[in-house]
Amino acid sequence: MPWNLNSDRPIFIQIIEKIQVDIISGLYMPGDKLPSVRELAQEASVNPNTMQKALSELERTGLVYAQRTSGRFITEDTTMIDELKSKLAKEIVTEFLENMQKLGFQKEETISLLEKTLATEKSTKGEADNDTGM
């Protein structure tokens, strides 16, 4: 599981984002125990202090909670996870729309292009399915 961290943005922020996505995508389920700071730091090849900072920040937002002696766990509050999911999705869509606007696309054009792309994706995917069926 590569972490793909860039050096030009604070590492702890990128770690937070990565763990958020891992929670949303279900790689970590609600109530799961997180690996230790040390293990995570080694896996990501980052300084343990940086990992510690990221986890403390996740704890502050409530997405992760610490239990005195047994470590850190993913929140069992699924509403919170759902809210984070829609927040991140909204950010991605907003960024996409901004980029399309930079290219000179009006909203309607963007939507019709989206629909067209989805339609071709569906048909090529259909073909691929047929291929494997043969």
Binding site: L5, D8, R9, I13, A44, N47
Partner: peptide, 30 residues
């Protein structure tokens, strides 16, 4: 990525001693 602090030495003097993520945040640079 494994550092948490840096010391920049310049001509025998300390130019900067700072936390790496703070430097990244301030300068938007690696």
């Amino acid at each position: 990525n494994i550092l948490d602090q840096v010391v920049f030495l310049h001509k025998g003097r300390i130019h900067t001693h700072a936390c790496v993520d703070e430097l990244r945040q301030e300068t938007h640079k690696s």
